[in-house]
Amino acid sequence: MTKPLADILEDLLPQTQCTKCGYPACRPYAEAIAAGEADINQCPPGGIEGVRRLVSATGRTVIPINPVNGVERPRPVAVIDESLCIGCTLCIQACPVDAILGASKQMHTILPDLCTGCDLCVAPCPVDCIAMVPVTTTTGWDAWSQPEADAARARHDFRTARLARERLENDARLAAKAVQKMRDVTAETTNTPEELAEKERKRAIIAAALERARNKGTPT
Score class of each variant (00 low, 15 high):
residue 156 H to N: 08
residue 138 T to L: 09
residue 172 A to V: 07
residue 152 A to V: 03
residue 127 V to W: 12
residue 156 H to A: 01
residue 127 V to T: 15
residue 142 D to M: 02
residue 156 H to L: 04
residue 166 E to M: 15
residue 134 P to S: 01
residue 127 V to M: 13
residue 143 A to P: 03
residue 139 T to S: 10
residue 154 A to E: 10
residue 156 H to G: 02
residue 141 W to D: 00
residue 146 Q to W: 10
residue 132 M to V: 11
residue 168 L to R: 13
residue 159 R to L: 15
residue 148 E to S: 03
residue 173 R to G: 01
residue 158 F to H: 11
residue 162 R to Q: 08
residue 148 E to Y: 01
residue 141 W to E: 06
residue 162 R to T: 12
residue 144 W to A: 01
residue 137 T to Q: 14
residue 132 M to A: 09
residue 127 V to G: 13
residue 147 P to H: 06
residue 171 D to I: 05
residue 133 V to F: 09
residue 124 P to A: 11
residue 131 A to D: 14
residue 159 R to K: 15
residue 146 Q to S: 10
residue 174 L to V: 08
residue 170 N to S: 12
residue 165 R to G: 00
residue 128 D to F: 14
residue 141 W to A: 02
residue 132 M to K: 01
residue 170 N to K: 10
residue 140 G to W: 01
residue 157 D to Q: 15
residue 134 P to R: 08
residue 153 R to W: 07
residue 165 R to T: 12
residue 153 R to H: 10
residue 170 N to V: 03
residue 159 R to F: 00
residue 158 F to W: 13
residue 144 W to G: 03
residue 130 I to N: 02
residue 157 D to V: 15
residue 141 W to T: 00
residue 151 A to V: 07
residue 169 E to Y: 02
residue 124 P to D: 05
residue 146 Q to N: 10
residue 161 A to H: 05
residue 132 M to E: 05
residue 141 W to K: 00
residue 161 A to K: 13
residue 174 L to H: 07
residue 131 A to F: 14
residue 129 C to Y: 03
residue 143 A to C: 09
residue 134 P to H: 02
residue 143 A to W: 00
residue 150 D to Y: 09
residue 146 Q to D: 12
residue 128 D to H: 15
residue 125 C to Q: 07
residue 161 A to N: 05
residue 146 Q to I: 15
residue 165 R to Q: 14
residue 147 P to D: 08
